[in-house]
Design a protein around this nucleic acid. Structure first.
Lengths: 177, 177
DNA sequence: TGACAAGTGGAATGCCCCTTCCACATACTC
DNA sequence: GAGTATGTGGAAGGGGCATTCCACTTGTCA
């Protein structure tokens, strides 16, 4: 169904536009369709958002898996956080407007992402690059939220994201006695 | 006006209850009043929330000023962040549900708070306890968001908040060559 | 105690938004 | 080319919510 794709593209576009209204009507208008058509194509607004967000998030999760396979854990973590922050910077709406919704596919993807990051953290901890007194699960949550924090604090200054990453990862290093 | 106080108390209570509905009706019900009375007492829902949030935030800002006067900047920063995280943990709604609203008094208070934290950071940087390659303004934003991140990542495990604070402040330390 | 002012809250109003309906258009089938 | 199946979108339906209205209650003062 071609309209399905049009609606999906429109939703993905709006998710990347800061402050854009995510009403069905706005999505339909952007797609050049009627609101009824958009809703029918997905069975409801939530299903449409679920599909759109998943499309955006999927490659991010894949990238986490790839980095985990390619690089040592701590390097993978740094590289991935860099990309995650870029993604979150470009898609504030994904994090800010979708809090209270139940989007099954998105939730599953997020769980995948969390588990990949957790593996990075566990690996880095085994390698002695992350302090041992931190619970990996809690640290994963903290790092995820912190990445969001950096995206929100978003410096227009280029290079500052890397500085922040250094701050975060230095903090996580085992204390030098 | 007694009802004004009742409404204010009810709103403050609900702001501290995770997941509570912040509709006028819910606030009125909690206060034992009619919705019309609550709205009339403040001239609108936003004004009520502005008043309630300001009441909650005011002491926090005052505490920042006090600590700044009492303790050296870096110690003040650590102590204040500890209290800020506690506050945010107990009042998720203040940060999560009020994003898109225009609350003038609250906005002014927040600016006060930001400026107090900025002073702490600048002082700590002068004292060599925070790396010099960080822009104080951007760092202030980052720290604010990070405090929120910690509150969200909220460990039930007691003492973990302190560990996270250590992580953050260690990261901000000048790198040891 | 009676008359008037102020305050109150259930109901009505209006707005926003998702969803459903239905008259119409378009695409297939024979 | 007529007839049916499928798709479309403007408009109506319906729920949630802030705000306003107004009949009524409460308080005040002479």
């Amino acid at each position: 169904m071609r309209n399905r794709q049009l609606a999906l593209d429109a939703a993905m576009t709006l998710l990347a536009e800061p402050g854009a209204s995510l009403t069905v009507e706005a999505i339909a208008k952007r797609a050049g369709l009627g609101a009824a058509t958009v809703v029918r194509a997905f069975g409801g607004k939530d299903a449409l958002l679920d599909a759109a967000v998943s499309r955006l998030l999927g490659p991010v999760v894949q990238r986490a898996r790839d980095l985990l396979a390619e690089a040592p854990p701590h390097a993978a973590l740094r590289a991935f956080l860099r990309e995650l922050i870029d993604f979150q910077t470009a898609h504030h709406a994904v994090n800010d407007q979708l809090g209270g919704l139940d989007l099954p596919t998105t939730t599953a993807l997020r769980a995948d992402l969390v588990s990949a990051v957790k593996e990075m953290i566990e690996g880095a901890r085994r390698d002695g690059e992350i302090r041992a007194d931190l619970d990996p699960a809690a640290t994963t949550t903290l790092i995820g939220e912190t990445a969001l924090a950096v995206a929100r604090a978003q410096p227009s200054t280029p290079g500052l994201v890397d500085t922040y990453l250094t701050v975060l990862l230095d903090g996580l290093r085992p204390p030098t006695p």
